[in-house]
Amino acid sequence: MIRSIILALVLVVLSMPAFAVEPGEMLKDPALEARARELSKEVRCLVCQNQSIDDSNAGLAKDLRVILRERLVAGDSDSEIKTFLVERYGDFVLLKPPVKAETLFLWYGPFAIGVLGAIGVAVFLLRRRDGGGDEAVPMPLSDDERKRIDALMSEQDRKA
């Protein structure tokens, strides 16, 4: 394993970009490498549309992966690295947009709609409340239809 990583360090420099994360890029410190992997899943590969740099084999993605790791080794925090990328490529480079005025609706819109929906549903349910009696509105069906439905429902509505 260690032998192959050392081997990789020698080899990969010369090989064409082939795959997403390559062995030669990986950090020796497993904790730091794990952080790098997590972080690069949140960074967009700019030239390949909707892939993270972790998934992409594009040259630019590889460069960004390498830079990201260098900065991790240098002791940068995750947010410092993100800031570094955003300064050059804008918010577009982040797959998880930062929460700010322009993205408030993105982050809280579904939640707000959920709350509104919940209020609506609560009002609806309370208004629909059964007084304990049977159905208030008779079904407006013709005799013919009634017969057909009865035939269909007879098998299973016995219990209800």
Binding site: V47, L60, D63, I67, Y89
Partner: peptide, 13 residues
Amino acid sequence: GDGRAAIDWGVYG
């Protein structure tokens, strides 16, 4: 050579 300057410029390709 290593594309680092390009990244600082915000070059995509």
